[in-house]
Amino acid sequence: MSRPPSSLIRGIGAHIALAGYTAIALFPVAVIVINAFKSRAAIFSEPLMPPTAKSFSLIGFETISSRGDFLSYFVNSATVTGVSLALILLFGAMAAFALSEYRFRGNALIALYVALGIMIPIRLGTVAILQMMVNGGLVNNLLALILVYTAQGLPLSVFILTEFMRQISADLKDAGRIDGLSEYKIFFTLVLPLVRPAIATVAVFTMIPIWNDLWFPLILAPAEQTKTITLGAQVFIGQFVTDWNAVLAALTLAIVPVLILYLLFSRQLVRGLTAGAVK
């Protein structure tokens, strides 16, 4: 198919703009990753050069594996992020289904109340949260982080999923009801698969802040056995000396799981399953 030249030019222009944006977005990540594999001297002398045979060094990774229990930090981060994400998606989708599907008194009010959570940062409540966790005996317990992150992620998840679920054909759900599907089955087998792209979007947007968060791990779970990887990496940043090799190596490792999850979800983002559902 041939396209008129003007749209060809526009296409090239768009690609240049996108390529530029990609380069800007990837630059810091690339700097972290290439410097993680270099000796300390090389990091400072030529920060933008990829590692050469001479400057290549795994010293950062060696430091990590020798000092601190990095594997356990990793497991902690993965547990907190994974469990929080699962709870956010499950409860968010369920609340969204109720808000979009059923007419009941206070429906709009609840939706508004939930949406308010998007605008008010949860960190404002840190003191109260800390008191609550102390009273509940949950300090230095991963459960504390999971609860906080679930609360933090739910508003956006409910908000986005409610909008998406409103789009799903009412006839489809009614056909399910006539065929004798329970409301749970309608939710899990008819509605959830159709909002999969939206769920993937929410997952990506909520996962990254949780994985990267330093604030709540520092306040609620700073103990050695509950440290997350972002908190763990801080041991290498000292007031006077910073072990850059170790910091960059830790950050490089921290990127890997997020990247994997992102790739998993983004496949879903693109794949629309709705085609042919109705009409």
Binding site: S169, A175, G176, T274, G276, V278
Partner: peptide, 20 residues
């Protein structure tokens, strides 16, 4: 009586077939 127990069947304008 619930829809599924009414001994009825319905055909919708939008067909509403189960996509999966």
């Amino acid at each position: 009586v619930e829809p599924s127990k009414r001994d009825i069947a319905m055909v919708f304008q939008s067909y509403a077939l189960y996509p999966h």
